[in-house]
Amino acid sequence: MNATSSRVDLNLFRVFDAVYRAGSLTQAAAQLHLTQPAISNALARLRRQFGDPLFVRDGRRVAPTPRARAVAPDIAAALQALQRSLAVPQRFDAAASTRRFVLGMRDVLEFALMPTLTRQLLEQGPQLQLQSARIERRRLDRELVAGALDLAVDVPMTVGDELVREPLFREGLCVAMRPDHPLAGAPLRVESWLAARHITVSSRRTGPVLEDAVLQGEGLRRDVAVRCQHYYGACHLAASSDLLLVLPRYYGEWFKTQLPLRLAPPPVALPELEVMMYWPRNAEHDPAHGWLREQLRRAVRDGAPRPG
């Protein structure tokens, strides 16, 4: 085929297959409910694409050329594959599926969602595979549209029209400290909280985190002594020092069962952590994808974010 073959109309191959099987333009037209001139026009376009006559007159019938006989099995197989795809039932059978789902999320959300979600998925589909992958926000749109990620779970952000987003859950923040911290005996006050030293958690090397951005807006500032990449290490630091840590309450509640920590409400109004689910619009009507989205919603309804 020539350089323009990538733009060929797939309907032309239906005409080719019908003519090849019938050996007659008239019969092919009847089978496809087309006029004979329409069949002739389709064959003319195919001949230009292949650079070959494809069919030649043989009395009242037409006979395939060697080139037509060579490509006919591939065309027939491709048409059959398309037909099978269209015939697939519009439901997802998790119990029989070996599909691998890839979810984009950061570690704090992996901690919150994956235990419950994994348990649900493997109970219904014991052969399913689930992967949590770290996301780069600047590449989120293209990775979802390209299918590198099935879903993403992250904070609210602006995305293009090719993505769909849906609120998943909201969670409050708390302050963690060791039980015998000097500030542990009474409700936190703004002045004493700001006078203490703090731990902050961010995957970025520089720049304010949520609570610092809020404080800056109020004309306030706190003293950050340590900047960690993950809450795991930050919680251990808070449990073994006089440093204070602001973190999502679900994280604090779990670590409170593992480490000597006391949790307290922040002394300033901090916005809740809002989490969204993102998926590609081109997967909106895919049964397996719809099933996965519903499992994530169910995981939240059933208690996530509550690890374990």
Rank of each mutant, 00 (worst) to 15 (best):
S5M: 12
S6N: 11
R7G: 09
V8F: 10
D9I: 06
L10Q: 00
N11I: 03
L12Q: 07
V15K: 05
V19Q: 02
R21G: 13
L25T: 03
L25N: 09
T26K: 15
A28T: 10
A30H: 10
L34S: 06
T35P: 05
P37C: 08
L43G: 01
R45G: 11
R45L: 02
R45D: 08
R45M: 00
R48H: 12
F50E: 03
G51C: 04
D52N: 00
P53D: 06
V56A: 08
R57T: 07
R57V: 09
R61Y: 12
V62E: 00
P64I: 08
T65G: 02
P66W: 12
R67A: 11
A68R: 01
R69K: 12
V71M: 10
P73T: 06
A76V: 03
A76P: 03
A76G: 03
Q80P: 01
A81V: 04
L82S: 14
L82T: 03
R84E: 14
A87S: 15
V88N: 04
A94I: 02
A94R: 00
A96L: 14
S97H: 05
T98L: 10
F101D: 12
M105Y: 13
V108E: 02
F111I: 08
L113D: 00
L113F: 02
L113E: 03
L117D: 02
L117R: 09
L117Y: 06
T118E: 13
L121W: 09
Q124I: 11
S132F: 08
I135K: 02
E136W: 13
R142A: 04
L144M: 09
V145Y: 04
G147F: 07
G147P: 10
A148N: 07
D150P: 09
R165P: 00
E166M: 07
L168H: 06
F169K: 01
G172Y: 11
C174P: 00
R178K: 01
R178S: 01
D180E: 13
L183I: 00
A184W: 03
A184H: 06
A186C: 08
R189A: 14
E191M: 09
L194G: 08
A195I: 13
A196E: 11
V201D: 05
S202A: 01
T206H: 15
P208H: 14
P208E: 15
L210Y: 09
L210T: 14
E211K: 09
E211Q: 08
V214A: 01
V214C: 02
G219P: 08
R221I: 13
R222I: 13
R222W: 15
V224W: 10
Y231P: 02
H236C: 12
A239F: 10
L245G: 04
L245W: 00
P248Y: 08
R249T: 04
E253K: 04
K256F: 05
R262N: 07
R262W: 05
P267L: 09
L270H: 14
E272P: 07
L273G: 13
M276G: 03
M277N: 07
R281S: 14
H289F: 05
G290I: 02
L296K: 08
R298A: 15
V300K: 14
R301M: 07
P307M: 06
P307H: 05
